[in-house]
């Protein structure tokens, strides 16, 4: 990794200590941002393979609704078990849909995801006797490893729970990117013909990435559901997916920290924009995305990398002269 070994440790320390010094509402926003960053990671994963999904919200919803319904109808309360269950459900959904979708690229891939997520949205909306329709489902406070969090420390506990659940996801994606499959996915973006002429199935590479990405989307939905305490069909609406695509482009899909940085920046910006720019919020997103695509394809993370590079050069020249 270009950031070196120190970066993950520094990040862990900063995120671990953050809620101790930050006000409660900031901790809450940070929880949301961290939870959603897993979804951004899922989208970024596909983007790096040259695929964009305008329907990934369906996996977000699949995870969240599995948890919601297991709580509502199954009476389950244990967060760890529920998380496992939800991720499994989202991965299963991706494994099923992937059979059709992994055959497509580009436009068809993007729009098929969109179309199917709209079906999921419609089903969540219309089967209100199961899903609660537009009202959605309330997610009660779960127990964590059998312990019910205290009301006063709930916010803090959910933050750390989210953080702990997110770490393996980021680590898994890091492993994925350095693995043969991760490289195969980038190879698919570069040159499908050569991939097939190496005896590797492009469709299988995409399928595997799709299932992983769906599972990550599910995890993000579950964690978001826990911290917000309420889930609605809008999670599956295609513009929700579009927002995540925006954040992935914003943070920069080519790095592991990009989605996290993008997600945090986005969550805080949004909380202000709703107050001050309700009518121009989408326009701001659109203009920003255009600017990034046309002028800064590496996203926000390139700013850090640029600075780090300059820093290194500066240190080097300082050493030489000093």
């Amino acid at each position: 990794m270009r950031g070196g070994k120190a970066l993950p440790l520094v990040a862990a320390a900063v995120f671990g200590a953050a809620p101790l010094v930050l006000p409660g509402w900031v901790t809450f926003l940070l929880t949301l941002a961290v939870a959603k960053s897993v979804m951004v990671l899922a989208i970024a994963l596909l983007l790096r393979g040259g695929l964009v999904s305008f329907g990934h919200g369906m996996f977000f919803a699949a995870g969240a609704y599995t948890v919601g319904m297991a709580m509502k109808w199954g009476g389950m309360r244990e967060a760890v078990v529920l998380t496992f269950l939800g991720v499994l459900a989202a991965a299963a959904a991706a494994a099923l849909l992937g059979l059709l979708i992994a055959r497509y690229r580009g436009i068809f891939f993007a729009m098929l995801n969109m179309a199917i997520s709209m079906v999921v949205y419609a089903v969540l909306l219309k089967l209100y006797w199961v899903t609660g329709g537009t009202d959605g489902i309330g997610i009660r406070t779960p127990t964590i490893l059998g312990v019910m969090p205290e009301r006063e420390s709930l916010r803090l506990v959910m933050y750390y729970f989210t953080l702990v659940m997110t770490l393996p996801a980021f680590y898994a994606v890091h492993r994925f990117w350095t693995s043969p499959l991760g490289f195969a996915l980038r190879a698919v973006r570069d040159n499908e013909v050569r991939v097939e002429y190496m005896g590797t199935s492009v469709a299988r590479v995409i399928y595997a990435a799709y299932v992983l990405s769906g599972a990550l989307g599910g995890l993000a939905g579950i964690l978001t559901g826990f911290s917000v305490g309420h889930i609605v069909p809008d999670l599956a609406y295609w513009t929700t997916s579009g927002e995540f695509v925006f954040v992935a482009v914003l943070g920069g899909p080519a790095s592991i920290p990009g989605p996290l940085v993008g997600s945090i920046a986005f969550e805080f910006l949004k909380s202000y924009a709703y107050k001050y720019a309700a009518f121009t919020w989408q326009m701001t997103l659109g203009v920003t995305m255009l600017a990034i695509i046309l002028f800064m394809p590496g996203g926000l993370w390139t700013i850090y990398e640029g600075l780090a590079r300059q820093g290194r050069q500066w240190r080097l020249s300082w050493k030489r002269t000093g």
Binding site: R175, F176, T178, S179, P180, L181, G182, F183, A184, R186, A187, R189, D190, N191, R194, M198, G199, T200, R204, V205, A208, L212
Partner: peptide, 28 residues
């Protein structure tokens, strides 16, 4: 593969030959 390095191109070919292209956990 135009976005990768020369060596990475060859490593992908080697992994493909070994039938390891779909491994997601071990490093390339």
């Amino acid at each position: 593969y135009a976005s990768l390095t020369v060596l990475e191109n060859v490593l992908i070919a080697l992994a493909a030959r070994e039938g390891q292209s779909l491994r997601a956990w071990a490093p390339l």
